[in-house]
């Protein structure tokens, strides 16, 4: 198709759907103003920012802030923590809503299914502040329900939120209990699109429950799983600021201090804006490479991908 005919086709499309184009235009303008134009100010990451000289006058130092980043002993620790916690959340947390959706899909009792779905979905709408309060009430070493139970059974109470051994498992567990219901709904929606005749054919062929799940259900939602997995990998260096900030304390910095909390302390509280912009750019670059890389790999393996 020549350029002229393409333009002609676009013109016809535009005339036909002009209102849709105008609606899209508003969104594009929003993106340009709030997402693309601010990119320019990322250049501060390559400057030695001075309050006196401002953004324009501060001297250019190339990769100086990035070098400082990798010489900062605390940054290397938060990078390690971020990777470990994120890997745990992906490794354990990512399959959980899939399993929940599969379970709910197989439950015959509508009332039971709706009840479970509602119970698992509600925590998603509770803020981390409230959720943390509930966790304190359960895990408190002096009055927490769990510790009371442990002591009644003859054990010794555990200061869960101040324990290096328990902090990461608690982050993963709280993430799963809070967000699994929400993601399960996405998989449930995908499951609704799987052709029922394939199930019937599988039953006729003598497939048991697990064989039906393995050979029919999972392939049926594989594209959704793949897309969500790629997007999740792009967030590998994003653990969730609110969750960690509310739950952590200096007692667990060694295992729980992550890039986002480090960035908050250095940037917002400490005023080191150039340094923390460099951290942000580093995070984005890693996320970008991971999305591209995982998309390419998964496309080869599963034929599904983002584009």
């Amino acid at each position: 198709m020549s350029i002229v005919s393409r333009l002609d086709s676009f013109r016809k499309q535009f005339v036909k759907n002009k209102f849709l184009f105008f609606m899209a235009l508003a969104i594009m303008v929003w993106y340009v103003i709030f997402r693309y134009i601010p990119y320019y100010w990322n250049l501060i990451a390559f400057k030695e920012f001075s309050y006196a000289k401002g953004f324009w006058g501060s001297p250019w130092i190339g990769f100086g802030n990035f070098k400082a980043l990798f010489q900062d002993a605390l940054f290397l620790r938060v990078l390690r923590n971020t990777l470990v916690i994120s890997a745990l959340k992906i490794g354990i947390g990512f399959p959980f809503p899939i399993l929940l959706a599969l379970f709910l899909n197989e439950v015959f009792s509508r009332t039971y299914r709706k009840t479970i779905q509602t119970i698992t979905f509600i925590p998603f709408f509770i803020s981390w502040v409230i959720y943390a309060s509930i966790m304190y009430a359960i895990l408190s070493p002096s009055v927490g329900m769990l510790n009371v139970l442990i002591e009644k059974l003859g054990g010794k109470g555990i200061y869960f939120l101040a324990s290096e051994a328990w902090f990461r498992p608690l982050l993963v567990a709280s993430e799963i209990t809070k967000n699994s219901g929400y993601f399960a709904v996405i998989y449930m929606a995908a499951l609704a699109g799987v052709d029922q005749e394939i199930y019937e054919a599988a039953i006729c062929d003598g497939a048991n429950l697990f064989q039906r799940i393995w050979h029919v259900t999972l392939p049926g939602i594989a594209s959704v799983i793949t897309i969500l997995f790629i997007l999740r990998l792009g967030q590998l260096l994003t653990v969730g600021f609110e969750q960690v900030y509310i739950l952590y304390s200096p007692m667990v910095y060694d295992v729980g201090d992550v890039i986002e909390t480090f960035n908050y302390r250095q940037g917002i509280l400490g005023g080191r804006f150039a340094y923390t912009t460099a951290i942000g750019l580093f995070k984005s670059a890693i996320g970008f490479v991971l999305v591209l890389g995982s998309n390419a790999v998964l496309k080869k393996l599963t034929e599904y991908g983002l584009w």
């Binding site: 605390l74 200096p250 007692m251 302390r265």
Partner: peptide, 21 residues
């Protein structure tokens, strides 16, 4: 202080609570 204080303060809090606990 502008460059180093935030990290030193955070680390002091951390080691102090570690020793106390």
């Amino acid at each position: 202080d502008a460059k180093y204080f935030v990290n030193l303060q955070a680390m002091f809090r951390e080691i102090a609570t570690k020793i106390v606990s």
